[in-house]
């Protein structure tokens, strides 16, 4: 059994071992600290100056990563809390992403910006956000998110293979969960990019849920309650690539689709998924796709208030029940 943070750590070790052109930069990433969430543990000892603890300079960290990539190497930069990627917005969107095409010919920029996301830890309004939505639709930029079902090493190879900058989101609560485990009721398989989590032996589900890595466990808890208490069968699709929205398999027969997104309401990833699905499923859907998001508000520090704002298993369950009633 491997925790997601350990799995990511191993993937970084393997990547840096197999590819000497990979650099890693971020605040407090060196040993013995090994990063705020310990994902970079052991790397500085093994890979020397290819791993650098940086000053508190998110904009420049992203820019330096882009420079290494421009110069022919590859860079992984860690933003300590995803909230602070706002400070690197210019370097990521106006330099790294645009450079891939603004010079009239393709310019590879193999840069991965790792961003620990999400709340439910009582860290308060500036240390709990899911900023994925702010980066949707930026030309030249791809978004990925860690899930318990995808091999991180393969995701790093894929992101670098694109030759364009990628944001890689990692939910902080997910770090503590186990890889490749669902719940005793459900199994999972990978269909291309997408993890499909389904009830073994069940026929057509009543509802297909689509979510991102950080919400997998809350969504599974909701699916369990929907099955055992409401007699509703749900299936779950979890893409590792968030944007551009990849092909989501098997939705042609879905009586209902519900997208669950931990970002706050308004201009959301969930809406982007729905936009991608409507032309494909139009005429087959019985009702509009249900979008579930965190509330349109800051994320409070106090747990009882934070809980009310963020998407939770009970809010997912309630939304699915209401949609199907």
């Amino acid at each position: 059994m491997t925790r997601v943070s350990e799995h990511l750590n191993q993937a970084l070790h393997d990547l840096m071992e197999s590819d000497p052109s990979v650099h890693l930069l971020g605040e407090d990433v060196s040993d013995p600290y090994g990063g705020a969430f310990k994902v970079t543990r052991g790397l500085s000892g093994r890979f020397g100056s290819r791993v650098r603890s940086t000053p508190l300079s998110e904009g420049a960290i992203a820019g330096v990563g882009a420079g290494l990539a421009l110069a022919g190497d590859k860079a992984i930069v860690e933003i300590m809390f995803a909230d602070f990627v706002a400070l690197a917005f210019d370097q990521i969107t106006n330099f790294a992403a645009k450079s891939t095409s603004m010079y009239g010919r393709p310019v590879p920029v193999p840069l991965v910006v790792r961003c620990p996301t999400g709340g439910n830890r009582g860290y308060g309004p500036t240390h709990s956000q899911n900023p994925q939505k702010h980066f949707i639709g930026v030309p030249g930029l791809s978004l990925f998110e860690m899930t318990p079902f995808h091999d991180a090493g393969e995701l790093f190879s894929r992101m670098f293979g694109l030759g364009r900058p990628c944001l890689f989101f990692e939910d902080k609560v997910l770090y503590t969960r186990q890889m490749y485990r669902t719940d005793d009721l459900f199994r999972f398989e990978l269909v291309d990019d997408v993890a499909r989590v389904y009830l073994d032996g069940a026929g057509r589900p009543d509802c297909t849920l689509v979510t991102h890595g950080g919400l997998v466990h809350r969504t599974l808890d909701a699916m369990r309650a929907l099955l055992l208490e409401d007699d509703l069968i749900c299936e779950l699709l979890v893409p590792a690539q968030l944007y551009p929205v990849p092909h989501l398999p098997g939705l042609e027969d879905a009586p209902h689709v519900c997208v669950v997104d931990d970002g706050t309401e308004g201009g959301t990833w969930a809406a982007e998924v729905a936009t991608a699905l409507y032309p494909r499923l139009w005429g087959r859907l019985r009702r509009p796709i249900t979008l579930i998001n965190s509330a349109d508000g800051v994320i409070p520090a106090a747990p009882h208030l934070e809980r009310e704002v963020l998407v939770q298993a009970d809010s997912i369950r309630a939304a699915v029940r209401e949609a199907l009633s």
Binding site: L56, D83, F84, G124, P125, H127, A302, L305
Partner: peptide, 20 residues
């Protein structure tokens, strides 16, 4: 109100924020 917590306080003419 418990919204800000340890790092985000605005009280009279005192204000803190968690982004360096």
């Amino acid at each position: 109100g418990g919204v800000g917590g340890s790092q985000h306080i605005y009280h009279r003419r005192f204000l803190s924020t968690g982004v360096q």
